[in-house]
């Protein structure tokens, strides 16, 4: 049984990584072919670093992801605290339902619905094209917020209520007790929520596709436009770089996770 499950696991991972491995290998191919390797070359990487449109889209993606992360983390944390303290059951239920909608609706519907509203409101103001960085930012904050709330709210519920109360008994104002006691208690949830918001924004294509204007292109949209035509191996070079960045980030986050645990012990 043990060997069977090992072989099975290996086969699934082979399936998951074979396409990525092919991209990696052929990004160093001299020829344009994706099936015959003719010789090692870095020319596609050189081409990539001279492709201004792609580089600009990388900067745009990071700008958008950082902004949506900051806004959704602050607003989402505040919302969690509010929902946690709320006495009105109906309002709490309504907010929880609203939070679930972007999570369970297909991306294409979230994207279309926001686009219809932006276009309609834009027309009211007589704008021919209302889609821009700002509409994209609104869309990204909207689909990032549930991830933050779903991370922070359970942390608040797990927190010992007597902690902030003790702080207030010892002379803290409620606001000071919140920042000195509650925030540190729920910090792991806030951080995980922020990281999830950042990666969701970074990786989103479908919602961005419907809410982006011509002037502001993110990397996924740039990739989409690149794959409409026959692709040059420049894109495989890009994929390879993305792969190693992700690998590094995952390893770092796992290592810091480990050192946290040893400290806690």
């Amino acid at each position: 049984m043990k060997t069977v499950s090992k072989i099975y696991t290996a086969l699934i991972f082979l399936f998951l990584f074979a396409p990525i491995a092919i991209l990696l290998v052929f990004s160093f191919n001299e020829a344009k072919s994706l099936s015959v390797f003719t010789g090692f070359s870095l020319k596609w990487y050189r081409e990539l670093f001279h492709d201004d449109a792609t580089l600009q889209s990388v900067r745009n993606t990071i700008l958008l992801a950082v902004t949506s992360m900051v806004i959704s983390t602050i607003m989402g944390t505040a919302a969690s605290v509010g929902i946690y303290k709320m006495r009105e059951k109906w309002l709490r239920a309504a907010l929880n339902t609203a939070t679930d909608i972007p999570m369970t609706n297909p991306d294409i519907i979230t994207g279309i619905s926001l686009m219809l509203m932006f276009v309609f409101v834009g027309r009211l103001f007589g704008l021919a094209n209302s889609l821009s960085f700002w509409t994209m930012l609104i869309a990204h904050v909207t689909f990032c917020l549930p991830y933050v709330i779903l991370q922070v709210l359970p942390r608040l519920r797990q927190m010992d209520v007597s902690l902030p109360e003790a702080a207030q008994d010892l002379g803290c104002t409620p606001l000071r007790a919140f920042f000195k006691v509650t925030i540190p208690e729920i910090m792991p949830g806030i951080l995980t929520g922020a990281i999830m918001a950042f990666t969701m924004s970074l990786d989103d294509f479908v919602i961005s596709y419907f809410t982006s204007g011509a002037g502001f292109q993110t990397l996924p949209i740039r990739i989409y436009n690149m794959t409409k035509k026959t692709v040059t191996p420049k894109m495989y070079a890009l994929a390879t770089i993305i792969f190693f960045v992700i690998l590094a980030l995952l390893i770092i986050s796992n290592l810091t996770d480990d050192s946290d645990k040893t400290k806690a012990k």
Binding site: G76, A78, V81, G82, I83, K85, M86, V141, T142, L145
Partner: peptide, 17 residues
Amino acid sequence: AGWVPAGPYTLWAALFI
């Protein structure tokens, strides 16, 4: 007590969800 911190999100969810 819940109204103040949840206010911006309530407005946001109504407007954009």
